[in-house]
Design a protein around this nucleic acid. Sequence first.
DNA 1: GGCCGCACGTAC
DNA 2: GACGTACGTGCGGCCG
Length: 911
Amino acid sequence: MKRSEETTTLYLLDGYSIIYRSYFAFMGRHLSAPDGTNVSALFGFFRTLFSILDEYRPGALAVVLDSRVPTFRHEMYPEYKANREKAPEELHAQVPMIEEILGVMGMTVLRKDGVEADDIIATMAERCRKKDRPCVIVTGDKDLLQLLGGEIRMLRPEKGGYQLIGRDDVFDQWGVEADQIVDYLSLTGDQADNVPGVKGIGPKTASKLLTKFGDLDGVYANLNACSTGERAKLEASREDAFLSRSLIILKKDVSLPPEAPTPVGDLNREAAVPLLLRYGAKALAEQAKGAKISEKQLSRQREKRAEASSVPDELLGEGRYEQIDDLEGLDRWIEKAISAGACALDIETDSLDAMLANPVGFSLAVSPKQAAYLPLIAEGQRKFDDDAVRERLVRLTSSPSVRIIGHNFKYDYKVLRRWGVVTKNLAFDTMVAAWLLDTTANSYGMDPLAASLLGYKTISFKDVVPKDGLFQDISVETATRYAAEDADITFRFYELFRRQLKERGLEKLFFELEMPLVPILAEMECAGITLLSDRLEAYGRELEKDLGTIEDDIWQACGHSFNINSTKQLQQVLFEERKLTPIKKTKTGYSTDISVLEELAREDVVPLLVLRHRSLAKLKSTYVDALPKLVNPETGRIHTQLIQTGTATGRLSSKDPNLQNIPIRDEDGRRIRSAFVPAEGNLFISADYSQIELVVLAHLSEDPELSQAFRSGGDVHRRTASLIFDVSEADVSSEQRRIAKTINFGVMYGMSAFRLSRELGISRSRADSFISAYFRRYFRIQSFMRKVVQETEQSGVSKTLLGRERSIPAINSRNKTEKAGAERIAVNTPIQGTAADIVKLAMLAVSRRMASEELKSKMVLQIHDELLFEVPFDEADRMEGLLKEEMESAVKLSVPLRVSIERGGSWGDLH
DNA sequence: GGCCGCACGTAC
DNA sequence: GACGTACGTGCGGCCG
């Protein structure tokens, strides 16, 4: 729904203010058009205009210009704006150029002969005020400050950006109220308009006098209450002061046509491009074409969001922290936690790796600002009996009457579990909540979140622990300040996020899906997976030998040695020495990626050798050499971290190592999977959702043909081929199936015909016709995609089946490429994200069944649409049945969800 | 020597 | 410009 013009913010851009500012700001840069004309004002003006359009996204904007003929102010005071008139001709010459460009863009320009821009602005602002319509005046001129109040604000250009100020900021900055600005400038004068003021009275004195006497009349009525010096100055310039006032005071009743400025959405920015290029402003022309979503803009949007859900006072300010130094103290805090019903818990350790870390202390918070730290070890000394503390922590983390709150508690869970404490009552992870509320943030660490959401600067770990030092070596006081603060902030996040989750309708997703998943992921990470390092190391030696041979061959062919892993050196060899034709560019040079090398391999041997070298080097460095280093010395297994807050769509990610991208497709890579084996007496069972994303697409789009393809079972790619090529399924060739498969996947990613043609090695027009045949047969898919894009345009978010949201601000970008990219994201997110929702539901269901049936089998990995289990031989049959049942019924869709199950003696045996 | 962006490549 | 989501590696430029 389009917002009514009357309610969108009206931006009034004070043209000459910006033009003058720009001229002088860019004067030193000698900006000139190809014919030598100075364009510094033009350049600066449009840079300002576009950056306001892009950063602030006004609903409507008008440029206001001054009269071309003298106004009543000039009659009153011939020197009025004399300083401006004296500006060089080359500045004035740019005004018509600017106006011409504004004209072709369709920008509303307000100008009236005999009337100052300021008076037009005052009149327009007054109209807004009467209608309660928000209005932002863009100017560097101080006299317009008199208009501020309520919905009328000002955007002042300043070095490096803009400052948006309202009525209250006027006082903070100038020491007088907005409605005293006229009197204030009458005293100080206004350099911009050459208004004299009272000689010798500056900002300080002016604000002092006005605070005392209210206004100019008040000041002159109380001259005898002023100091002798002030009185003398005021008396000497009495006339100037009152003249100044009548010059500064703005008319709010200029007669102007009633029509509203053109909405910004209707502006034709592209039309400015040829003119800007004519003036040699290439970068500006780029900016005119459309907005890049800048970091600045993103952070502005985030600020806005933070502003909107204002932080309650009780979550602001300093906390009061206690140090717990005996068991009685601990007991008191545990009682506090129980009677509060909630407790933020944070463990301090000696390592960032939870699988190696030992607890050195922990902190508790039972309400905002009320927290304590218990040092197990401090200043290098053990302060408590571990067993006594452990016993009490078990009580705290098992009590059904306490809700445990943590920030990234999966880490704490693992440390505690390894220490003999299993958390049963985890209720709220504030890191997971922060992610669910904004899946696109850069970081969910406590320090940045505290800064951005609470405006709170935390003590950083670096500040308290010396480099390469350990937490247990610092003083108890410092440890308490640092650690208790973490628990305190966590509790504050809890208060903040639980409200926000509720407001946003994300409670169910959070409490019933993401939170129960935390201990499951923690258990999977603790379980780990066995790697046969020997097998891998032997493979590594083979690879080394092969790589050496290929390297020699490449060097021989090139006549010299070089680093094959350096794309820069490789570019030189391929494109300069061997004169091969570059196929595509990267930001920094010519690409040497697989597709390029494959193409080049048709005319030269070196690219082929490089391809082989690349693939083996990748295997060796990323997997063969890296994996054995990550075997945990205590468990002898590999414990990946499954990151819950790592993706914008809701998927998990995996790191240290990433076990979600272990090779499977070619034979070389599969040898790496073969090094992953189940524990003695166990086998692996994998359960894999068939075509889950296409099934989700069928469900979400309600496309009858695609749904039918799944209901009838069989091969969906074959079925698709039969539909688009109009042959019976039995007659589908493998080539046709390959094409159908590529389109099936491509559609979900928003693949273009261009890409499809390249991928399949067919012409653009054939690719086009395949795609249209596809959408003809699966006709609801296209309307589904249109609907998703449209809804995302309205709401700014794309959603999954369970209501998970991803914000996509670029969906309303005017930059075509960016807009298209945002549309692909908007369409892909419900598909990928819903599949992620389903797999997570399945993990919960399976895990509950395994617990209730008291099985010893362990879930060890999730690879997006697949779950991997380590299963004792005698549980294999039961597990297979259980998995099929629970996974296929994890969610009820309009199409059947199928799971295929395999078992094997190594990971390499599966699929 | 540490940090970071880039190009590339692996998975789903 | 042209296919979505991740993570890890080596290179090479930058900084101190």
